[in-house]
Amino acid sequence: MRRLGLYLLLGIGLVGFAYPFVWMGIATFTPEAEIPELTLLPSRWTLEHYRLVFERIPVWRGLLNSLVVALAVTASVLVFTSMAAYALAKLHWRGRETVFSLILFTLMIPFLLLLIPLYTLVVRLGWTDSLLGLIVPFMMNATGVLILRQSFLTIPRDLIDAARMDGCGELRILFTIVWPLSVPALVTVGLLTFIGSWNEVLWPIIVVREVQWMTLPQLVALFAVGGGAEGQLGPQLAAAFLLALPIVLAYLFFQRYFIQSFATSGLKG
């Protein structure tokens, strides 16, 4: 009896958190007039909403822009922050502690303080309306340094010394010895960076005004706010569903990594 109650409560939670997504998915194939109805399935299925979305916004282009930005940012963060994290964890040099506190300090500065000056910097560099403006400011990431440093600290010094004896350079040690031993941390940083970049919408809205350089979340947000959807719900939901789809699919397959990564970042904060 108590077990039944437990599963009942958990089931209510399940409906509460997952059902809206299911409903949204169905609604995108439902004729506009039927969307507000409480019936589970539409009387007929329609692709009309998707047709309008693909007609009004360059979905593929947006997807490509988002992918390029997120992949470039992620790759750069992985390479450069692991270099910094390695230097902080495994090498001795004067000023190391200062640099580490500096990196901790950057975490304390709210982004809203930097928003305007960072934008003016991008304007001066001439990077508005370009993917550079979306990528370069986010090529490094302090959280990444912290997570990777923590992981690198656990790698035995002997391993690294042995490699040095064999004449390996530090970069080679980092990428051939340290990286394979730090896969979970790398996955965490990579996933967090990728999702963060993929979902970011304030910065693109500020920096990009030309449709051809807009990311998918930005296109979808402007589609919902602007008149693109002609105030219809179906197309807005369809656009949102398209935006959610890649992440949701990835999540279905790799949810363990997602949860671990986000939990790690939560504990760090």
Binding site: L14, F17, F21, N199, V201, A224, Q236, L237, A244, I259
Partner: peptide, 20 residues
């Protein structure tokens, strides 16, 4: 995993969903 799903989805998606 089900409860966690909204965390990974973009705020834009969630907002458009809740708008409805």
């Amino acid at each position: 995993a089900a409860y966690f799903m909204p965390v990974v989805v973009s705020g834009v998606v969630i907002t458009i969903l809740f708008q409805q």
